[in-house]
Structure formats: structure tokens, C-alpha cells
Simulated scan of single mutants.
Amino acid sequence: MSEWLTREEALARLNVRPQTLYAYVSRGRIGMRPDGADPRRSQYRADDIAALATRRARGRSPQAIAESAIAWGEPAITTAISTVLHGRLVYRGKDAGALAATATLEETAGLLWASRSRVSFASLTPSAVRQSGTPTAFARLSALAAEGWPSLGRRPAMLQQDGAAATSVLATSLGAIPGSEPVHERLAQGWSVDAAGADLIRRALMLLADHELNASTFAARVAASTGAPIAACLLAGLATLTGPRHGGAGAAAIALIEDAERLGPDEAVARWLAHDRPLPAFGHQLYPEGDPRAEALFSEFKIDVGLLRLRDAVLAATGLHPNIDFALAALTRGLRLPADAPFRLFALGRSVGWTAHAVEQVTSNRPIRPRARYDGPIGSN
């Protein structure tokens, strides 16, 4: 639940006049609602006020604004694809948690790409791939990128076709069997998962499809701004996703779960914190009150007692809630998926978002080329 402030509290935190507060509300920069105890009075959303106060404290220096945009700061790129708004993930104006009830990854791609035609990730020819996994995905996507057309000067529909082809290659590389069925069904067959498990995979892929301007998406957009082929943009995203602070967090989450099983949850949490290691799969700066993507997955399957105990131990020790990485680790264990399934699901689902952002970046025709603030020595003449 969001925190709400009285008029007096809001004015004190912002140090502004009432007229300025009302102007922020009218522009949609601060949420407002009637006070439940006294409908004649209003309450104001605390996280909106905190964000405004932070921006005002930085001042309007271009350098300060530019530097603040790099790490969880000011919005740096305009997009119509997705956003996180008051603790909800929104895909083109639609709540992703609600869409997860029925939407496939193909339908999500149609929405995020604003496609005028039905999206398919079909792979109708028998796959020559003998093994599946991350190395295979890199190899096949690299080959596709090397052969791809540059993206500049081409219609969005053509770029979307390139994205669909690249996602199809990723799907079979990461374990999906060839076919024309929705990709979650083919992935479930490749992993020997029943229909109920296939629906959980569908839900996970859809929830992972996009997440605003995260690190891998930014990398994909940078590549797109140079006119690189769409497959190369996805390759940039995939490379960035491998980092332990991004798509690699699922492996760390499983390691924490295994420690909790061996040592007990309280001892495992204490050891990770004592070694100055951030707890993987818990907490998210965009979701201080809990990751709605994790909640949307947890609502459909029952996690085991050991994971519940770990969740409670972390909450008691840190106040942090489980995020999507914890949910993917729980799903992997519950369905007995390959050990690297969290990364595979992340990569396949997010390829849809990478494509959406790459196409949006290309059609905007704007380069991404920030300047560096030099902090080194100046040589003498």
C-alpha cells in the first residue's frame, strides 16, 4: 500500500505554497485522493512527493540532471512501450498483472510492438540444434545478426518480422521444440512439463516481456540507435542480461535457497548479510512494497514450505519482499526445470521487449551518444 500524506505534511516536505502543490496535482505529478476520515480534505501520494523533492534538491544543472539519469534517476528516454507506475507494471496502458491471466507471449508482442498483424514465433523446420542453453542461444543469434539487414530506413513491420525471427531462434535455442504452437507450449514440451506447468511458463514469459528502461533494454536501444540489425540489438540485450545484477540473479537466488536448505533460513540469511552480500531475489527499487510480477506468479502456484520460511526470514531480517527472481527460482524448483531456466525464461520473454524498444528507437531517428564527465589528469603542452 502506498503512503499518503496530509496537505500540511505535503507542503512541509516540498517546502512550497499551496498553489504550487495544487499545480503539481493538476499536472499529474502528484497523486491525490479524498481523506477517508474527512472527505472534505485531501491526501497526497508520498512517493510522488519524495521524487519531486529529490529533483528539486538536485537543482536544474544540466550536468546534475544528466548524471542522475544514469542510475534510477530522471527519465532519460521517451517511450510508449511500458512503465512502472505506483507499484504496477504497465504495458502500453494495460496492467501487466491483469494481462498475465490469459495473454501469451505472442499476444504480448503484438501489444508491445503495436503490430497490425498477428505475431508468431513458429519454427516449422526440424531443429538441427542438439543441445539447448545459453551458449547455443548466443551462437545462433550471433549468426543471425551477422547476416541481418541494417535497421535504418526500413518500415516498422519489416523490423518486427526480423524481431519475430530472432525470438523464434532464441526459443528453439533455449529448449522449445519446433512447431507452430504458442512458444510457451513448445517450451513446456521441450522441458517435459504438463499443461498446468505450461500455463505457468506462459505467465512468466508474459510478465518478463518488458520492464521499462532496464540495463539490457538500454543496451538494445543503443545498438538500434546506430542502425544495427534487429538481431544484433537483441544480441546486445542478451549479452547485458548475463550479468549477475540482471538476468544472472536467478542463479544467485537458487544458491541462496540451497544455503537455506542446508543451514536453515535464518542462518543462511545471516551469513549472506555478514559477508556484505546483497540478498538476491529480494527487494526492488521500483517496487518497495513488493514486486507485482512475483505476486502474479505466486497467485497461481503453491511454493514449498522451505521457500516460505526463507521468504519470512528475509522479511524479518531486512524488510525486503521477494521479487521476480525469487518467483522464477521457485517456479524452476516446483516444475523441475533445467537449473538455468530462470535465465532462459528471462531471455526469451525479454526478447519481445528488446524488439519493441529497438523498433521504437530506430523510428525515432535519434542517436544515443551521451558525453562523459572527464575526471582524469590534463596533460601539459
Results as ranks from 00 to 15, higher is better:
Glu3Ser: 11
Leu5Met: 12
Thr6Pro: 04
Arg7Pro: 00
Leu21Asp: 14
Tyr22Lys: 02
Ser26Ile: 02
Arg27Glu: 11
Ile30Pro: 05
Met32Trp: 12
Asp35Lys: 00
Asp35Glu: 01
Asp38Ser: 13
Arg40Lys: 14
Arg40Cys: 01
Arg41Lys: 15
Arg41Leu: 12
Ser42Lys: 09
Gln43Pro: 10
Gln43Asn: 03
Arg45Met: 05
Ala46Met: 05
Leu52Phe: 03
Thr54Ile: 03
Arg56Trp: 08
Arg58Lys: 15
Gly59Phe: 04
Ala64Trp: 01
Ile65Ala: 15
Ser68Gly: 11
Ala71His: 14
Ser82Pro: 10
Val84Trp: 11
Leu85Ala: 13
Leu85Lys: 13
His86Arg: 14
Arg88Leu: 10
Gly93Leu: 06
Lys94Ser: 10
Thr102Glu: 07
Ala103Gln: 12
Thr104Phe: 06
Leu105Thr: 04
Ala109Cys: 06
Ala109Thr: 08
Trp113His: 02
Ser115Tyr: 06
Phe121Trp: 06
Ala122Phe: 08
Ser123Cys: 15
Thr125Asp: 09
Val129Arg: 08
Gln131Gly: 01
Gly133Ser: 04
Pro135Asp: 12
Thr136Gln: 14
Phe138Pro: 01
Leu141Glu: 09
Glu147Cys: 09
Gly153Trp: 09
Arg154Phe: 13
Arg155Ile: 12
Pro156Thr: 13
Met158Lys: 01
Gln161Lys: 14
Gln161Met: 12
Gly163Tyr: 02
Ala165Lys: 14
Ala166Ser: 13
Ser168Glu: 03
Ser168Pro: 03
Ser173Leu: 09
Leu174Arg: 13
Gly175Ser: 06
Pro182Thr: 03
Pro182Ser: 06
His184Trp: 04
Glu185Pro: 08
Leu187Phe: 07
Gly190Thr: 02
Trp191Pro: 11
Ala196Phe: 01
Arg203Ala: 02
Ala209Arg: 09
Asn214Lys: 03
Ser216Asn: 02
Thr217Cys: 10
Ala219Asp: 01
Ala220Asp: 03
Val222Ser: 02
Ala224Ile: 05
Ala224Gln: 07
Ala232Ser: 14
Leu234Gly: 00
Ala236Leu: 07
Gly237Leu: 03
Leu238His: 07
Gly248Leu: 00
Glu258Ser: 01
Leu263Glu: 11
Ala268Pro: 08
Arg271Leu: 15
Asp276Val: 05
Arg277Gln: 14
Gly283Ser: 10
Gln285Asn: 08
Tyr287Asp: 07
Pro288Tyr: 08
Glu289Tyr: 10
Gly290Lys: 12
Ile303Leu: 09
Asp304Thr: 08
Asp304His: 13
Ala317Lys: 14
Leu320Cys: 00
Asn323Lys: 04
Ile324Ala: 10
Leu328Met: 15
Leu331Ala: 11
Pro338Ser: 11
Asp340Val: 02
Asp340His: 13
Ala341Glu: 12
Val352Trp: 05
Trp354Tyr: 09
Thr355Phe: 08
Glu360Pro: 06
Arg371Pro: 00
Gly376Gln: 07
Gly379Tyr: 07
